[in-house]
Measured scan of single mutants.
Amino acid sequence: MDSLVVLVLCLSCLLLLSLWRQSSGRGKLPPGPTPLPVIGNILQIGIKDISKSLTNLSKVYGPVFTLYFGLKPIVVLHGYEAVKEALIDLGEEFSGRGIFPLAERANRGFGIVFSNGKKWKEIRRFSLMTLRNFGMGKRSIEDRVQEEARCLVEELRKTKASPCDPTFILGCAPCNVICSIIFHKRFDYKDQQFLNLMEKLNENIKILSSPWIQICNNFSPIIDYFPGTHNKLLKNVAFMKSYILEKVKEHQESMDMNNPQDFIDCFLMKMEKEKHNQPSEFTIESLENTAVDLFGAGTETTSTTLRYALLLLLKHPEVTAKVQEEIERVIGRNRSPCMQDRSHMPYTDAVVHEVQRYIDLLPTSLPHAVTCDIKFRNYLIPKGTTILISLTSVLHDNKEFPNPEMFDPHHFLDEGGNFKKSKYFMPFSAGKRICVGEALAGMELFLFLTSILQNFNLKSLVDPKNLDTTPVVNGFASVPPFYQLCFIPV
């Protein structure tokens, strides 16, 4: 009986604490739906499609509103004006990374994606500088992407125009580009180590996009005490870190300090320079996690976009025909596509942009946080508050993009057929937390897609009208449904 009384008292205290925290903070924060004790607004949000729920709530509470995930307040920004004001106009104040408990377990605050403060700034600055020195957006990395595009075309030829699921092959190409940047090595598509790495990356994007992960991140005790797919994700990350550590040891034994070959060499050189400046942010643990982040951000996002792009091109054969006509006119058949071609191919450029806009790969991006107490639109948001960005509300804005739910390359073309930029184009987020590999991803999408369409016609196994382009999961990332196609050599 005594234990029951204690339990009831504990629960009562928890409920009172929950109510007090919510009521004391709500006077400062933007308005929002009334949260339930302990669980907050979790029942009012469709976990399978958070973005749709945010759109519905914005119609009631406006472009800036507050939700509670458990006891934790989260300020939501919906629509271009609110997102721009926060991420661009007040970029420094909104540059923090929001709480992501599962990532905390995986990387302990290291790396480039989930770190904060001085650690994040130094690692991000170093990573950007190193990638630029190796030619991100310049010639040397373009050579690597072109080489991988040629290998991709050869792998597709091996399908002999038979029906195939493109998931694996389209994942190999961007993964190999990242391998060449980090390890100075590309792998054969049949290499077992490479296959294991690909498998872990593919599993992780599916797990991260599941409703279960949303629950884990908002009720963090689940991570330590409950079984579930989150444990598989943590094991996959541990596998990748151990693999990278092996490569780091190989580099330490063979590195030429006067001739760095890749990202690992550059990081080890930085560690050597910083060894007298303790404590340094440049450690082996930081290198492991930064490399894992580059793999995660640079492989599955690009391969998922490529997979979605081919599905949309199957669905819209008239678009595919126009792209192939432009390829034939500008590039021809006797040389590989290059980035200089893009400025002469406005329709193809528009298609690449429209694919990214339409699929809305990361509907709410990753959570941000404010780095200080900030007054925002007459609300006071306390330091450390998590900020949720609705990228969907920007990419699918119906004023900027008429009929935003329709796939239409003319969203990025003017009346004369010239490519038209849009400030609403934010597939990689915006501001200080914009994806480090934005330029690389854009290069890969253009070169891989043009190389495929230069060499193959795409054949659907069903009537294009019957192809479903609805994402199968739409949590962290929008993942396309399973499909097969035939690559018919031109």
Rank of each mutant, 00 (worst) to 15 (best):
R433P: 00
F446G: 01
A441V: 12
E142G: 03
V237S: 07
D165F: 00
V351Y: 05
P337I: 09
E354Y: 01
L208H: 08
E93F: 05
C216V: 14
Q261N: 10
A238C: 08
T55G: 12
K158Q: 12
W212N: 05
G27M: 10
S422P: 08
I327T: 05
N107K: 02
R108S: 12
S254N: 14
P346F: 03
Y68T: 04
E142F: 03
H78Y: 11
M257S: 13
P31M: 06
W20S: 12
V370L: 15
F476L: 15
R335D: 06
G431K: 00
D256N: 10
A103P: 15
H410G: 10
V436G: 10
F407C: 00
I141F: 08
K48V: 07
Q324P: 01
P31R: 07
K190Q: 11
A173H: 01
Y225S: 08
G40I: 03
E415W: 05
L361Y: 03
P30N: 00
Q22I: 13
S3L: 13
F446H: 03
F94E: 03
N133V: 06
V113L: 15
D341T: 02
C216D: 06
S140V: 09
T320P: 07
F65E: 02
P464Q: 04
M406N: 13
P363I: 01
A369Q: 15
S422T: 12
L208S: 14
L4S: 15
L17H: 14
Q192R: 14
P346M: 06
G135P: 10
C151N: 11
G96Y: 10
P227D: 09
E328R: 15
F194N: 01
V38R: 03
E328I: 13
Q324A: 06
V323R: 02
A369S: 15
V490E: 04
K423G: 09
N398F: 10
S336I: 11
L54Y: 06
P464I: 07
S209G: 09
H344V: 12
F425P: 02
Y483M: 02
C266D: 06
L208K: 08
N277Y: 08
S53F: 06
S390E: 06
A350G: 04
F100D: 15
M257A: 14
L287T: 02
L453S: 01
W20V: 13
I223P: 13
R433V: 00
V319L: 03
C486R: 14
A103Q: 15
E438H: 11
Q192G: 10
L7D: 06
A477E: 09
E85F: 06
C10S: 13
S140W: 14
V8I: 14
R108T: 13
A350M: 01
E438T: 13
F476G: 06
R125F: 02
L71P: 15
G27Y: 14
T130V: 07
C372A: 14
S280V: 10
L9C: 12
V352C: 13
K118N: 10
V5S: 11
F65N: 02
P480G: 03
F376I: 11
R342H: 08
E81T: 10
I112S: 09
S390D: 10
P337Y: 01
E326Y: 00
F376A: 06
L36M: 11
L11T: 14
Q340M: 13
S365D: 05
T371Y: 05
L197T: 01
Q324M: 04
L128G: 13
S95R: 09
L413V: 04
A238K: 14
E415V: 09
E328Q: 14
E415G: 10
D143H: 11
E438I: 07
I42F: 10
A369Y: 15
Y225K: 10
Y68C: 03
S140F: 12
L361T: 08
M443A: 06
P260M: 06
P33K: 02
N236A: 03
L67T: 05
A161Y: 03
F194C: 03
L447T: 06
L453E: 00
V38T: 03
N277C: 11
S336D: 11
G96P: 10
L453G: 01
V462Q: 10
R97E: 00
T305Y: 04
G46T: 08
Q22G: 14
V248I: 15
G384C: 03
C435A: 00
V237K: 03
A477S: 10
N259A: 15
Y308I: 02
L294S: 01
M129A: 13
P402D: 14
E142M: 04
T302D: 00
E272C: 08
S23D: 11
Q340H: 10
P317V: 06
G431A: 05
Y189C: 01
V330E: 15
F100K: 08
F263N: 02
S390P: 05
V38F: 14
I434M: 15
D360V: 09
R124Q: 07
I331G: 01
E328S: 14
Q22S: 13
L9H: 09
S303I: 02
M426R: 13
A291G: 05
L233T: 05
D349I: 11
D89L: 11
C266W: 15
K158R: 11
G171T: 09
T470K: 12
K383R: 10
G475S: 08
S3F: 14
C151H: 15
L43Y: 09
T305S: 11
K232Q: 09
L485E: 00
I331H: 01
I213E: 13
N41Y: 02
D408T: 06
L29W: 08
K399C: 12
K465S: 11
K84E: 07
E92V: 11
N258R: 12
L312S: 01
R342F: 05
F376L: 13
K465F: 04
L362D: 01
M271S: 09
I452L: 04
I389Y: 09
T283M: 05
Y189P: 02
I223Y: 15
I88S: 13
G135S: 10
H276S: 12
I50E: 04
L362E: 03
L131E: 04
P489F: 00
H316Y: 11
E199H: 13
K84S: 09
I215R: 06
N196A: 14
P30T: 02
F446W: 15
K138Y: 12
F428P: 01
P166G: 00
S162R: 15
K185C: 05
V436N: 06
L362G: 03
N378I: 05
M129N: 12
M198L: 11
S336T: 13
V462D: 10
K459G: 08
P409K: 01
Q278H: 11
K235S: 10
R124G: 03
T304P: 02
I223F: 15
N107G: 09
F476S: 07
I387F: 08
F407D: 00
E325R: 13
F219S: 08
S115W: 02
T130G: 08
E250K: 07
M269H: 10
